[in-house]
Deep mutational scan, measured.
Amino acid sequence: MAAGGDHGSPDSYRSPLASRYASPEMCFVFSDRYKFRTWRQLWLWLAEAEQTLGLPITDEQIQEMKSNLENIDFKMAAEEEKRLRHDVMAHVHTFGHCCPKAAGIIHLGATSCYVGDNTDLIILRNALDLLLPKLARVISRLADFAKERASLPTLGFTHFQPAQLTTVGKRCCLWIQDLCMDLQNLKRVRDDLRFRGVKGTTGTQASFLQLFEGDDHKVEQLDKMVTEKAGFKRAFIITGQTYTRKVDIEVLSVLASLGASVHKICTDIRLLANLKEMEEPFEKQQIGSSAMPYKRNPMRSERCCSLARHLMTLVMDPLQTASVQWFERTLDDSANRRICLAEAFLTADTILNTLQNISEGLVVYPKVIERRIRQELPFMATENIIMAMVKAGGSRQDCHEKIRVLSQQAASVVKQEGGDNDLIERIQVDAYFSPIHSQLDHLLDPSSFTGRASQQVQRFLEEEVYPLLKPYESVMKVKAELCL
């Protein structure tokens, strides 16, 4: 049975990233139509530049190519590739079939990587351009969430054990800070992308030097003109047959890092959902379990974690691919890159769409948070109580021993009897502590235990987050809708 299948058929496997999760716009960027249309555009740009620099290419040939950029006979191309065992030459023939007058000058002087690699770089750039505003929107939604809850005390956790208090907004800023680093890295790697350009079979530009009869300047002009037509500021000066596969490492490393950030955020949300302090959106008709109707599973956060793990592992592909590119190139890269580049971007696209949807509907339960604080705060307040007693004339050592005994009794009630923490009640009825009984409410005010959390939130948002989001103001209103 021949390899390949009808990918629109229910009898043929289709990647869930495309069929179930990723956005239509990201799927289109990695589609065959987008790819092969870009090949034709690159052939047109090459012909236009070659004509401008004096090669015998007519206006009629150029116009014929322009008129057929979208006229792609995919069936013919597939048949040609089956016959020739070469995808680029299959599309040269297919393009030439609908451009008979231009057929002889299509791909003039070029090698397969002229269309293959340059198209990949265009796709990487455009895919990054799709991700950047999506990530900015996630940051914006979380920034709104953090600002609104900047002063809401909550129990902090280290080692997932109760620690000092923080605020809900401050905790959210930990998430935002990681995503801001990801946004900066995505922008950097996007701006650092260079075009492969017009380089020939081993990167020496020998074929173009021959076409222009040894004119170095025209060869350099050709490279520059096509690079500018493709919208790049610069091209690699040095290439082998391909652009260095280190570029793929750079791009997928940034995406993998984004995956790590999203995994951490969504894990926190899942843990908070278990504590009943916070939940992701839950639709009115949504079913959490087929057997347990009360369940409210954090399905979206779980999906993000599941896909983020996949995204983090994909960076190993370009690392290994770059390491086995012998001399000017081997074909070890080809099949692998067809999979890992598309999957990385479709996965990143999915987790950003999902995280935006989550961040637009996060639900906080202040009463649950308050109750958990009441359970733990008495123990945390013991040092403040000791200091207040010393100020009232008591002995630190005597007070410490009193607190120690009462704390152990209260802990026994919590752990052995399943009761509430009654340390404060014990202190309130103990005559030894009568000098500070009137101060206990103040000493137990949760806001006095959150330090500068709310001020940190305000400063972080104003100095770091809002300036970073400013270039994306025009796209901030787009909502994230999930079908599944």
Rank of each mutant, 00 (worst) to 15 (best):
A2K: 15
G8H: 15
S15N: 15
S23F: 08
V29N: 10
Y34T: 01
K35D: 03
F36L: 12
F36G: 13
T38V: 13
W43H: 14
E48L: 04
A49G: 08
G54A: 09
I62R: 04
K66D: 10
S67P: 07
N71G: 10
D73C: 08
D73S: 09
F74Q: 13
M76V: 15
E79S: 10
R83Q: 11
V88W: 00
V88I: 15
M89I: 04
H91N: 13
H93W: 12
H93F: 08
F95H: 07
C99R: 01
K101E: 10
A102C: 09
A103K: 13
T119M: 02
L124S: 11
L132Q: 13
L132S: 13
K134Q: 15
L135S: 09
R137Y: 02
L142K: 08
S151G: 12
S151A: 12
L155V: 01
L155S: 01
G156P: 00
G169A: 01
G169H: 02
R171D: 02
W175M: 05
I176K: 04
I176A: 08
Q177G: 13
D182S: 04
D182F: 02
D182K: 06
L183E: 08
F195P: 04
G197I: 00
V198S: 06
G200V: 02
L209I: 12
L211N: 13
L211A: 08
F212N: 04
E213W: 11
D215K: 15
L222A: 05
M225A: 11
T239M: 02
T239S: 13
L255A: 11
V262C: 14
V262W: 05
V262M: 09
C266A: 11
L271H: 09
L275F: 06
E279A: 07
E283S: 14
S289F: 00
A291V: 02
Y294Q: 03
K295P: 04
R296M: 10
R296I: 07
A308V: 06
L314S: 11
V315G: 07
D317M: 07
P318G: 07
P318M: 03
Q320D: 06
A322R: 04
A322D: 05
V324F: 13
W326C: 06
N336P: 04
R338Q: 06
C340L: 09
L346Y: 10
A348T: 13
T350S: 15
Q356A: 12
S359L: 07
R371T: 06
Q375L: 05
T382V: 09
E383F: 05
A388M: 05
M389A: 00
V390K: 01
R396P: 04
Q408K: 13
Q409V: 09
S412D: 13
V414Q: 02
E425V: 08
D430N: 10
Y432D: 10
F433M: 07
F433P: 01
S434N: 09
P435H: 07
P435K: 09
I436D: 04
D441W: 07
E463N: 10
E464G: 05
V465A: 10
L468Y: 01
V478G: 15
